[in-house]
Simulated scan of single mutants.
Amino acid sequence: MTTSDAVRSMFDVTDPDCTPKLESHAIATESATTVATTLKALAEPLRLRMLSFIATAPAGEACVCDLAALTDVSQPTVSHHLKVLRDVGVLTSERRGTWVWYRIEPGYRGAVATLLDSFAPAALEAPHRQPVLGGLDDADAVLDRLAAELAASFADVHFDVVQRIVRESYTSLARTAKVSAHLISLAERFARQRLTDTTRDATDSVPQVLFVCVANAGRSQLAAALVRHYAGERITVRSAGSTPAADVHTGVREALADLGTTDAFPKPLTDDAVRAADVVVTMGCGDVCPVLPGIRYEDWLVGDPALASPAGIAAIRDDLDTRVRALLTDLLPDLTLPTT
Rank of each mutant, 00 (worst) to 15 (best):
R323G: 10
F211P: 00
D263N: 13
A187I: 13
T262K: 01
K178I: 13
A28Y: 11
F265P: 01
A41R: 02
L22G: 10
T176K: 08
A225N: 05
R296V: 14
P338T: 09
V206W: 13
W101I: 00
S172M: 07
Q130P: 10
L320I: 15
D272W: 03
R86E: 15
A255R: 03
R238K: 02
S180Q: 12
R145D: 10
A139L: 06
V166H: 01
A147E: 05
A315F: 11
T33F: 09
C18Y: 12
T71C: 08
L82C: 03
E44C: 08
F119Q: 13
T196P: 01
F265H: 02
C63F: 00
E23P: 03
T282Y: 00
T243N: 11
M50S: 01
D201A: 10
D15G: 06
A181C: 08
L116V: 13
M10T: 13
P58T: 09
L335G: 05
P16D: 05
L292Q: 01
T19V: 12
F53T: 11
L143C: 04
I184N: 00
G110N: 13
A181D: 09
D140F: 10
G241F: 05
L301A: 15
T33S: 11
I295S: 00
F53D: 04
R275M: 10
D117L: 14
L48A: 07
T243F: 10
A224F: 09
G89H: 02
S153L: 11
P266E: 05
A223N: 04
L292V: 11
R96A: 04
A55Y: 11
P338I: 11
F119C: 14
D160F: 14
L195F: 06
Q130N: 12
L256Y: 04
